[in-house]
Amino acid sequence: MINEKIIVAGFGGQGVMLMGQLLAYAATNQDLNTLWFPSYGPETRGGTANCQVIISEEDIYSPVFSKCDTAIIMNGPSLDKFESRVAPGGKILINSSLVSREVTRTDIEVIKVPVNEIALELGNLKVANMVMLGAYLEVLKIFSIDDIIKVLKKTFGEGKSHLIDVNREALKIGSKSTK
């Protein structure tokens, strides 16, 4: 039974909102129930930005949740803020390029991916979020890379279609990085 609650957090500008939205779009395409909402407080102006996503085969009631199944952490301050919000037995994906400290919890699975370095090797730091999303797809096992590319093509439109290849590459490398 699919019922996944996700927090995606990082700096404003790292593409955390988009990561969450791509998951919600992919879920909609598969007729799953889903819900995305942003933290749109003053903290989005330069500080940490985050969004919460729910993907479920059942009806979704409360849009808010105290504990998530997976936290995707793109920077240090986000780890401080959300480490305690992961449910016991849940997962935390860490951008080890920017997060220097270790996760202190021992009851959750930690997956570290140096997404900034990988993105720089691909020649475009902006796809760091897609490297991370690729890693998460491998953990989540609901959506394929093609599912995300399909959504991304629609989101990008004609104007940014030349960026699809590098994003696909980023998703692929990300998905392999967890092994």
Binding site: Q21, A24, A27, N33, T34, L35, W36, F37, P63
Partner: peptide, 9 residues
């Protein structure tokens, strides 16, 4: 604000 800002199918 939550209904306004959230995305859902």
């Amino acid at each position: 604000g939550l209904i306004g800002q959230m995305m859902a199918p």
